[in-house]
Amino acid sequence: MSELRVKISGFGGQGIILSAFIVGKAASIYDQQHSSMTQAYGPEARGGACSSQVVISSKNVEYPLVNTADVLLAMSQEGYDTFLPILKKGGILLYDTDLVENLRSHKDFIAKGIPATRFAEELGKKIVANIVMLGFATKQAKIVSPDAMKGAIADSVPSKFTDLNMKAFQAGYDYNEEQ
């Protein structure tokens, strides 16, 4: 049995919950795996610290929470600071380089940055930064297959924004840090 525990963190309004929903859907509906997605948020709808988590497994997910993460997607400094300690040794950290600036030691992890929010702004909508990040995570952490991720994204966003979201996914997927 293989299990992958993914933590996604940022602030309210970035689509942190939606991101986890898309990952979970990609895994369970499109990749025929099992997945369990849970969320944590403050009482405020916008602006507060926000995190979500997905457990992907080849078998039924028994334990649904993420105490130690295999993959951490950090889209805010606070999210990075809070959840880096739960990233396991050898785990993969993916972060937004413009939003996470005070970096700690990454010697125990595979760490890669992407200016996801800036890419999203260049595409015309800051709101798709999370999709850029999902594209990046699909390539770099292989959390789900690219087709599954694209299918789940298309299912989960308003149809008139499908193209934009696909572009955002591709931008993240194609990004190479060393460029």
Binding site: S28, H34, S35, S36, M37, T38
Partner: peptide, 9 residues
Amino acid sequence: ALVGHMTEK
């Protein structure tokens, strides 16, 4: 609340 807000297949 955990079951209520959990998303699964």
